[in-house]
């Protein structure tokens, strides 16, 4: 399917799909639960950076694209803070897929407030502890044939 689409694109002169991860952060938290949200990024080269999410209703979205050769791993952690203390963390460690657009949905669930999973590779999602490592192909695609 993808090959056919690419050949069609080549014939029509359209662009190949970009390599992207679309981070989508949704939150159930109220201002009483958290007063700040910070998105931490870890690049395939191991570089790290943080972005402060402006206050206001979500979902908050952010596009990630590779700026080097390496595509994996990509770490995205979202921290909810109250009085500078982390009350909830949602996290995914995944990868770019070349010329594919995948969504990285991260949800700040009230069920996960103050939940500690006790393992560095486990994070709370929907009230239960799950592996933070998510194969890129398990991420939902962002449709490119709309």
């Amino acid at each position: 399917m993808r090959g056919a689409l690419a050949l069609t694109c080549a014939a029509l002169g359209c662009a190949a799909p970009p390599t992207e991860l679309a981070v989508v952060v949704d939150s159930e938290l109220t201002p009483e639960d958290a007063d700040a949200i910070v998105i931490d990024l870890r690049s395939p080269s191991g570089a790290t950076g943080s972005l402060t999410v402006p206050p206001g209703a979500g979902p908050h979205t952010l596009a990630l694209v590779p700026a080097g050769e390496a595509l994996s791993p990509v770490g995205v952690a979202v921290r909810a803070l109250r009085d500078d203390r982390v009350v909830l963390t949602a996290e995914v460690v995944t990868a770019f897929l070349e010329h594919e657009r995948r969504a990285v949905p991260l949800s700040l669930d009230r069920d996960c407030l103050e939940v500690s999973c006790g393992s560095p590779d486990a994070v709370c999602a929907r009230g239960r502890c799950v592996d933070r490592r998510v194969p890129a192909r398990a991420l939902p695609p962002v449709p490119d044939d709309l």
Binding site: A10, L71, S72, P73, F96, V130
Partner: peptide, 27 residues
């Protein structure tokens, strides 16, 4: 803009970029 079929998916060593089959719970 680039024209042509996308190159093969790079495998950067970590399983994260591969299929992920067998991890049904995460999916």
């Amino acid at each position: 803009p680039t024209v042509g079929p996308p190159p093969a998916i790079a495998d950067e060593g970590e399983d994260l970029a591969t299929d992920g089959a067998g991890d049904g719970s995460l999916m």
